[in-house]
């Protein structure tokens, strides 16, 4: 259902991490490793953020777009669905789904303006064709739930809705889209993990508040660890490494 997460297609489609971490056979043949696979997705998430910043698209649209992109790659291989086309198209489709129309023309304009590299270059026609393929790949499930709503509500409930906590938590939530967390965990648990990290970081003891919540704190702590692990390694995600990974796919002559 549209407003109830537990009856939504989003909930029903949640995957285990092991299922998300599968490099498709065709990509494997081309030498793509799991590391490469994750790296490309993170890089594409960053790409979507960057485009959205310039086009001035709402955060929620970006989050939905990245979720679409990550869902596509649980089903489709990168050698047939070029990430550099899938990523902007997901932003285009997410804008429609989230009611903030984004013109294909404008999108193509900004891609050209921001990236001179050939591999990002795509025309309107390519975006429109890919839009349909993405709809199909998503099995037409378009409603996505995000941690943002929960964050505001939970912070308020914990009495921690000061600017500093809110901004830190919000930033952490944004960063979770650089990982596959949204495919694996219910959004409110991702929100709690971000609040947990933020509270430790800001020296706020909210153990008592957490204990009152009827959630599995182990899951929350595990998500938090994943996020912290990601911060450890994310500095190693460079343009060079991305290029090396994406070139393995041999997408464009």
């Amino acid at each position: 259902m549209a407003a109830n997460f537990w009856t939504s297609s989003h909930y029903k489609q949640l995957l285990d991490q092991e299922e998300v971490n599968v490099v498709k056979p065709l990509d494997k043949e081309k030498g793509l490793t799991l590391e490469d696979f994750k790296l490309i997705k993170t890089h594409m998430a960053n790409y979507i953020w960057k485009l959205a910043q310039h086009i001035k698209v709402r955060q929620r649209v970006v989050a939905t777009a990245i979720t679409y992109m990550r869902r596509v790659y649980t089903r489709k291989c990168m050698s047939q669905y070029d990430p550099c086309l899938v990523a902007p198209t997901c932003l285009y489709l997410a804008a429609k789904a989230e009611e903030s129309m984004l013109q294909a023309r404008l999108l193509v304009f900004y891609i050209k303006k921001l990236y001179s590299d050939e591999k990002y270059r795509y025309e309107i026609k390519d975006i429109l064709e890919m839009e349909m393929k993405i709809l199909e790949a998503l099995d037409y499930y378009l409603v996505v739930f995000h941690p943002y709503r929960s964050v505001s509500q939970l912070l308020q409930d914990a009495g921690l809705n000061d600017t500093s906590m809110t901004q830190l938590t919000w930033g952490l939530v944004n960063d979770t889209y650089r990982m596959d967390l949204i495919l694996v965990h219910p959004p409110h648990l991702i929100a709690l993990a971000c609040i947990y990290i933020a509270s430790v970081h800001r020296d706020k003891d909210i153990t008592a508040w957490f204990e009152e919540l009827r959630v599995d704190m182990n899951v929350v702590k595990n998500i938090s660890m994943e996020i912290l692990d990601f911060y450890e390694v994310h500095k190693m995600i460079t343009e060079e490494r991305f290029n090396a990974a994406v070139n393995k796919l041999g997408l464009r002559p």
Partner: peptide, 8 residues
């Protein structure tokens, strides 16, 4: 018709 893909 406006070249904007699948109808909203």
């Amino acid at each position: 018709k406006d070249g904007d893909g699948v109808s909203p």
